[in-house]
Computed example of a mutant assay.
Amino acid sequence: MNNTQTVKVVSFHCKKVIRSLDCVRRICRTADVVALQETWLLPHDISFLGSLDDDFAYTSVSAVDTPAGLLRGRLYGGVALLWRKNLLTSVSVIARSSVRLAAIKIVVKEKSFLIVSVSTNSSENIPEFTECLSEVSTIIESTGVESVYILGEFNAHPGVCLL
């Protein structure tokens, strides 16, 4: 008896999800989890992700701060995670403070794993890059999962000294 289940995960740097709509929908036809970076959605536009594919639930973070009525923050940016609702029935959205990451915890057949979608840039802002990595580390430590998948756009350069 086979006691395993395969979950197909795809990451896509979409450079404005509305512009990449056809490609995201094609990815949804074959993937179970889709990690998106650079969605370029304003906070009030995040619900748009619910119209991409009826089989998918979502969580997303906008990089734009709009409480004062003026557009502030990273106008480019934003991350999202979409997951197939009928296959992945035990999904928890993980609280985070960074606008550069979205995370979900998935439990399948008593096995738990974390999926994180990240968009950050080390060369432009080292403190923000370090803060994002610290938050990812904190999320991993606090969730008690067996496996972690960190997907996205790190724009990091391993081996290059950041100091």
Rank of each mutant, 00 (worst) to 15 (best):
E38C: 08
E38S: 10
T39E: 08
T39K: 08
W40D: 03
W40T: 01
W40E: 05
W40H: 15
W40V: 02
L41A: 06
L41H: 07
L42W: 08
L42C: 09
L42N: 10
P43F: 06
P43W: 02
H44R: 09
H44K: 07
D45R: 11
D45N: 12
I46M: 13
S47K: 13
S47C: 14
S47G: 13
S47I: 11
L49K: 05
G50D: 11
G50H: 13
G50P: 11
G50I: 13
G50C: 12
G50N: 12
G50M: 12
S51Q: 09
S51T: 15
S51L: 10
S51F: 06
L52P: 04
L52W: 08
D53K: 03
D54E: 15
D55E: 15
D55S: 14
F56A: 02
F56Q: 04
A57V: 00
Y58W: 15
Y58M: 04
Y58L: 02
Y58H: 12
Y58F: 15
T59W: 00
T59R: 04
V61N: 03
V61I: 09
V61A: 10
A63S: 15
A63W: 02
A63D: 02
D65G: 00
T66L: 13
A68N: 14
A68H: 09
A68G: 13
G69N: 08
G69V: 07
L70I: 07
L71F: 13
R74N: 15
R74T: 03
L75M: 11
L75E: 08
Y76E: 09
Y76P: 00
G77E: 04
G77Y: 03
G77I: 01
G78S: 05
G78W: 03
G78V: 06
V79R: 02
V79A: 14
A80R: 07
L82E: 00
L82T: 01
W83G: 03
W83F: 05
W83A: 01
W83Q: 01
R84N: 11
K85P: 03
N86V: 03
N86G: 01
N86M: 05
L87D: 01
L88Q: 05
L88A: 07
L88N: 06
L88I: 07
S90H: 12
S90L: 09
S92N: 12
V93D: 10
V93M: 11
I94S: 05
I94F: 07
A95K: 13
A95R: 12
A95Q: 15
R96H: 09
R96Q: 11
S98P: 04
S98I: 05
V99K: 10
V99N: 13
R100S: 11
R100V: 00
L101C: 07
L101A: 06
A102M: 09
A103R: 02
A103L: 00
A103C: 13
K105G: 10
K105E: 14
K105W: 01
K105M: 14
V107F: 00
V108N: 03
E110W: 04
